[in-house]
């Protein structure tokens, strides 16, 4: 695994004419701050839109239920926070946000999102689904939670996480890995349906175990 350094990142972003091979991170509104010369990552900023799950609206979310996304939607409120205003994240509270920046990865580069140390020291966890596949394009979803003991104010526009980039060794594909979130321009509700998979596993455990195993 080769992590791509700052100079190469700038070349991939600003000086690669071929759109297919170009790494897109936009807008980088302060290049010096976001791609510092000695770093091997790009600092990313917090966007304006948040999905805030509420504690009391639904009893629970069972992903086996066909309409669990509707239930999640019922339990969540969409909030827009203007620049300069805070969103307060209370201890053990969780919200979905997105990066201000929009990304497009070429087919030979993947990435991963990690928290910035300064925020981590306040107790903020920025992302749990951190991997970004080659060919992905869209804004990054940030799963923000406060694992500290005191509320934290989050201000849209602040650099909150960092993305590392690395070359993919396998033969590059010309199609991105399909994702329901491909091309998303703002944070979205979860989109998956594991009902069939759960049913399959349910059938499996009904098989009788072999005698030897029973002993």
């Amino acid at each position: 695994m080769t992590v791509i350094g700052a100079e190469k990142l700038k070349e991939l972003i600003y000086r690669t004419e071929n759109p297919g091979g170009r790494l897109v991170v936009t807008p980088i509104i302060d290049q010096k701050e976001q791609i510092s010369d000695s770093a091997a990552a790009i600092d990313i900023r917090l966007g304006n839109k948040f999905i805030v799950p509420q504690r009391a609206n639904v009893p629970f979310i069972d992903v086996k239920e066909e309409d669990f996304i509707t239930n999640f939607q019922k339990s969540a409120e969409t909030v827009y926070v203007p620049y300069g205003k805070p969103l307060t994240l209370h201890p053990r509270h969780f919200v979905l946000g997105n990066s201000l920046e929009y990304f497009r990865f070429p087919f030979n580069i993947s990435g991963y999102v990690v928290s910035r140390s300064s925020w981590g020291r306040l107790g903020l966890v920025v992302a749990t689904a951190i991997g970004i596949h080659p060919g992905f394009f869209g804004v990054l979803c940030l799963e923000l939670s406060n694992s500290g003991e005191v509320p934290i104010s989050l201000y849209p526009g602040l650099t909150i996480a960092q993305v590392f980039f690395q070359y993919v060794k396998a033969e590059p594909s010309d199609k991105p890995a399909y994702s329901a979130y491909l091309g998303a321009t703002e944070v979205e509700l979860p989109q998956f349906s594991p009902t069939k998979e759960i049913d399959k596993w349910g059938k499996l455990v009904r098989y009788k175990l072999p005698r030897t195993a029973r002993r």
């Binding site: 000086r15 004419e17 897109v24 936009t26 807008p27 869209g138 321009t185």
Partner: peptide, 16 residues
Amino acid sequence: AYGIPPNEIIDDWETG
């Protein structure tokens, strides 16, 4: 066409 937002233009790829 490449799924990139149309917010900026790079006229000169030498200077970027």
